[in-house]
């Protein structure tokens, strides 16, 4: 079984919540992400039946991370922008087998850590 060193996390949230996604991901070591505007589609019949509307404007955030921190980030995203939050987000990850262009410089410590 091939072991993948990196994973790409896709997180689909309501428009305007991409910053919340990145804030949650950065806490666990993610560096940066890419936001793609998207349009969600929902089952119209189900929407009528349940009397809810699904906001069609979505943002798809792609975050490339090391496999070691993937689980932590997915849990953080679930807590911060999961389906039970206004962000109504879903997140999933896919294996990435080859990567180029990532900077390997260490992440700068947070302000509180620097003060210590």
């Amino acid at each position: 079984m091939k072991k993948f060193e990196h994973e790409v996390i896709f997180c689909i949230v309501n428009a305007g919540f991409s910053d919340a996604v990145m804030d949650a991901a950065r806490e666990f070591g993610a560096r940066g992400g890419t936001v793609i505007r998207a349009r969600g589609t929902a089952n119209m019949e189900a929407e009528k039946l349940f009397g809810i509307t699904v906001q069609p404007e979505k943002e798809l955030v792609m975050i490339l991370v090391k496999s070691a921190i993937k689980e932590d980030i997915l849990h953080a995203l679930y807590r911060a922008v999961g389906l039970n939050t206004p962000g109504q987000g879903i997140a999933f990850s896919m294996p990435v087998d080859q990567v180029v262009g990532l900077s390997e410089a260490p992440i700068e410590p947070k302000a509180e850590e620097q003060a210590e």
Partner: peptide, 27 residues
């Protein structure tokens, strides 16, 4: 051909002005 393409991209990311980027493959 993916490995060759990624090598080419890596070189271009370094050499092209304002051409920095990242690339990755998903099976």
């Amino acid at each position: 051909l993916a490995a060759d393409a990624l090598h080419m991209l890596e070189e271009k990311f370094r050499t092209i002005k304002n051409g920095k980027g990242i690339a990755y493959t998903v099976p």
